[in-house]
Design a binder for these strands. Structure first.
Lengths: 347, 347
DNA sequence: ATCCGTCGTCGAAGCGCTTCGACACTCGGC
DNA sequence: GCCGAGTGTCGAAGCGCTTCGACGACGGAT
């Protein structure tokens, strides 16, 4: 009496398909992978059997034999102050793009620390990693180099040699905002940026935007201040009041914090400054958000979808051992809304 | 001349560990799984070798041999109008809890449709599924029954027989809000709920909250209206103005839409109605959010963390073939803030 | 007719792990 | 001194798939 026999899983296996189609197991495999020529006739017979039996290849077996899990990791730190909706947009773009490349996405937060990345990578649970919310001096960067698996960063650390990074060109975005304001005659502008904690830990996009704003202001010889900006209404209110107390002649605002946009508008209203008559506002934020605000904001959208797609396709290229550029910065595009106007001619 | 020899992966295998420790492969396996007794001495020797070699078990091989991937799927539809931050909170709670149970999380959006769920489940990529944003008549529910893998719903469909569901008791939450207002003497209340689209597709939590609000109002014989509520400021403003035009004697507001809270406050301010002197506001939303609003809101927090943890632990129980309750509803707790007060005695 | 190159298919050897039965041992009870 | 019941360890058989080499069959060139 057989003896060992573990119970069969219930799911049909490739052997079942082969038997049903009257071909060898390897033939079924080649039909599925397309790695060898198979006659039209055989292919159709096999495909019919597959459909009939409801066959789905076993992921574990496939990963084991092919040394490819067809899964990529999405590493999301989920720190305080991150812009949740933007992150979510990235995540969905990544999942969707990955599926187009026949890969699935494993979600990793960082609270397991470096050990988590090791476990995942060394255990061959994933073929490659996508790392989000990158800091200028990110501790994960050296780690990535030791993992022995391809990775792509969404964001740009200070030192990008040997890496593959994708992001919006936030430096340029900051410049573009200021230039737009300058073109409209504004001579004193302010950046209301990310929460202080985000700058403190050296998050790339915040620093780069600030640098861009300040650089453009300097070049055009306009006065500029950059302020961090928390996300709750009371804080924002205080900031704005304070800003206009110190610099009453401020007429241009760059806001890089979608959560702060509403409160900023409210605060300006409370100060009796109208948008755009008295103060022009440019936002760096997801497009949807800016579009539904009222007035419709002049903005530099963060193209989360594009970036996510790019990131995935770069990672796929690396998985296929193709060379990839170290840094891919998407050019910012400024969309004019109703929140900016020429500066009012002095009384 | 070996011949076949594929290149070795580079990662040490269990065989390497066994050789290094001078034991059999199976012994290493038992040290790792604890499924058979191993002497202290041997265990330590093996563990030392593991650490020394930097061994991590290959996930695919393990999944194949044990028929357990140690991965669960998190199914997020990501439809319009979902409350992104809440969803994100769930997601991170799920990932964290899953790790505690030695599982990883595969992120699935629904844009691949039912086929995606089949692929994942039949291919044994995951051991079980966690399904979020459940509608009253969710098309995925019958599907889940056919997958042959355990699943847990975060949310509550109309028909929950044979399922396992976890959620906040939103019906009770609605009641609690109204009761709080009634206790403070309010006689006309309104619910500003989720966006219309959310009700239209029959999302459970929105309907259940509305039902709870209306039921409590009826029982306490106070007047109540329930309005859907979009997320952009202009819409909200119109709604609120309209509400008070029709029912100027409204003094209690239940808001179940964190994105709308700010605009609601602004609209009330614009109408010259102060919180809480003229109008009391109770929010159903994540705690963090309510806590940082000003005034600090009276709220029924959505305990995303708890729910996520519960969901995972129920799923783990199902994976272990233990019985689970069909419906687990967490009791709502109302936290008093500064946005509600006794109704002003009529002038 | 013969030879060679292609095409389509097959069989078998793993991939790295878990798990089952077998097989020493040791130890207490009689 | 022997038996039986644990203990601790080993060997081997898969898990379901991919991939490599082999090998007929066929067709065009010689």
């Amino acid at each position: 009496m057989s003896g060992r026999g573990r119970v069969p899983s219930g799911q049909p296996t490739i052997a079942d398909v082969a038997r049903h189609a009257g071909v060898a197991v390897s033939t079924v495999s080649y039909v599925l992978s397309g790695k060898r020529a198979i006659s039209e006739l055989t292919r159709n017979r096999v495909l019919a059997s597959i459909r009939l039996l409801g066959y789905h290849p076993n992921a574990g077996a496939r990963a084991l034999a092919s040394r490819r899990a067809n899964v990529i990791a999405l590493v999301l730190p989920l720190r305080s102050g991150i812009q949740v909706p933007v992150v979510m947009q990235f995540a969905t773009a990544v999942v969707t793009s990955a599926r187009r490349h026949d890969h699935d996405v494993l979600l990793l937060t960082s609270d397991e620390g470096p050990a988590g990345l090791h476990r995942i990578a060394a255990g061959a649970l994933v073929d490659g990693l996508l790392v989000m919310d990158v800091e200028l001096h990110d501790g994960r960067v050296p780690l990535l180099r030791t993992l022995g698996r391809p990775s792509v960063l969404i964001g740009l650390p200070a030192e990008s040699r040997g890496l593959t990074c994708v992001d919006l060109d936030f430096h340029r975005a900051g410049q573009v905002c200021v230039e737009h304001l300058v073109t409209h005659g504004h001579r004193r502008v302010a950046l209301l940026g990310a929460p202080a904690a985000v700058y403190d830990r050296g998050t790339g996009f915040a620093h780069r935007t600030r640098a861009g704003v300040l650089a453009a202001a300097a070049r055009h010889r306009v006065d500029a201040v950059a302020l961090p900006c928390e996300e709750n209404a009371a804080e924002v209110h205080r900031r704005v009041v304070d800003l206009f107390a110190r610099h009453p002649d401020t007429t241009g605002l760059v806001v890089q914090n979608e959560a702060a946009v509403g409160p900023v508008q409210a605060a300006l209203a409370a100060l009796g400054r109208r948008i755009p008559h008295d103060v022009s506002v440019v936002a760096v934020c997801p497009d949807q958000f800016a579009e539904h605000a009222s007035p419709r904001l002049t903005r530099v959208p963060v193209p989360a979808e594009d970036i996510g797609r790019q990131a995935v396709s770069l990672l796929m290229r690396k998985l296929g051992d193709e060379p990839t550029p170290e840094v891919t910065l998407l050019p910012p595009r400024l969309t004019v809304g109703d929140s900016t106007a020429a500066v009012a001619t002095a009384g």
